[in-house]
Write a protein that binds this DNA or RNA. Sequence first.
RNA 1: CGGGGAGUAGCGCAGCCUGGUAGCGCAUCUGCUUUGGGAGCAGAGGGUCGCAAGUUCGAAUCUUGUCUCCCCGACCA
Length: 516
Amino acid sequence: MSQNASIKHALPVLRQDDFAQWYQAVIAEAELAEESGVRGCMVIKPWGYGIWERIQKLMDERIKEAGVENCYFPLFIPLSYFAREAEHVEGFAKEMAVVTHHRLISDGKGGLVPDPEAKLEEPLIVRPTSETVIGAAMARWIQSWRDLPLLTNQWANVVRWEMRTRMFLRTSEFLWQEGHTAHADEADAMTETLRALEMYRSFAEDVLAMPVVAGPKPENERFPGAVETFSIEAMMQDGKALQAGTSHYLGTTFSEAAGIRYQDKEGQQTLCHTTSWGVSTRMIGGVIMVHGDDDGLRTPPRIAPQQIVILPMLRDNDGDAALLEYCAALRAKLAALSVFDEKVRVLLDKRPGKATAKRWGWVKKGVPLILEIGGRDAEGGQVSVLRRDRLWREDGKANFTGMAQDDFVASAAAELEAIQSALYTEARVRRDAQIERGISDLAGLAAYFSEDKDFPGWVELCWSRPTGAALDKVVEQLKALKLTIRNTPMDAAPVVGVCPFTGELAVERILVARAY
RNA sequence: CGGGGAGUAGCGCAGCCUGGUAGCGCAUCUGCUUUGGGAGCAGAGGGUCGCAAGUUCGAAUCUUGUCUCCCCGACCA
């Protein structure tokens, strides 16, 4: 986040001055989303929804490649479904939206109130997640070992009545996909749980250019009803962790609650082992905080709704027609190219207005490549190229490069690949530099996070994996430092030494961090 | 849900203390001049001051309630 005083940045707030305000400025200035007037709910605007559609498309392909089929289940879930699983209902009870009536009547004062005559026999819950309703369906669909594994997914909205909301990161309503699968035994279910986790890890890194650490969560961070919860954790530019996706092995918890059984080859009635896994619009919040800069979002090419925007420098004179013709021909050439196994997405922005003014709108949205084309470019067969990830020159001017149109067309696909790669590398280098592995006691941990450092990163340390009351004590100690255990990295270095919390021999490595 | 702050034109704000039918900047529109890089000048349009009650001859301004947003905390697959 080095600064050049001569640069006039596009955002009103810089990252280093106020990260929370900067985050909201990106969302507003890049026109990703806006407030709706309904508590905790946002309107997702075209550029933000376009990014979500890209995520949906590429994730959906991966889900289907794994043999998982899409379904759709009801938004409303009978209250009694939740009551079947004590831990699950307890986990969500405090944040459930409840429908109690099905009709309104006039209150006699010009307003409307729920009709007392139209009270529902049984309240309906607006789904916070769908294990219960999908479990009920699985119980109907599964009879025989031949019906397994049952692999389903749905793209849907869910509602969780959160106390404190933040755009994309924690909204009352959010969009996600939730995979739900049922298997004959634990081994098969665990394989699926880990397959989904690896799908998320590679998606985050390859598609979102967002490096993540995958691994199991400690027992206090498990999904209500899960036997084991795995997550991918990403580091934001302020050093905080963001849980960007989760995959749960649910054991027979929901099978017992919903009666998901099959007759095995020996003729025995056997409980299924189930899994669930999901990623949400929260991923967009992660992309913002990993790739955003003081000029707005830098959208990774693979999820950019437009990868190249052409800005003709219209002059409201006779030369405009020829200029537009040149730009349209250029657009056609670029649109015929492929990158990342898809057609290049290129927009010719013909809206009235000065190109220089429109440019900053696209810079803030993070379009990977911006082309500004003037009359002289058109006459000379040239283009003027701005790479979003290398926006500024040393002198504080926008870093345009002039080149022959043919050369640009020939290199455009490779350039988009290079931007995708550069964003990943930048994030990876930054994250790796901010994981501290040299701390082995509580005092060191406290010192690391109390240092007068604006954005401390993560600490990876060895511990003895306490459980129950011993774990609760550790959680309390960490809470005093505003820290949480993120997960146990799966590719961690060998374990050494003793646990800083219990003094016992360490058995695994954990990541400790401040988190969103 | 607790503590703090805020809602006035599309956006950002002043006015409120000391009630008298609303103002600035940016943006928008019009005109002129500029323009190979986030233009200048002049003029114009746009607001039941979040919503609802109350006090008052009169409320953006005072009182109460309520909704929404931001920050801190608690909570959070």
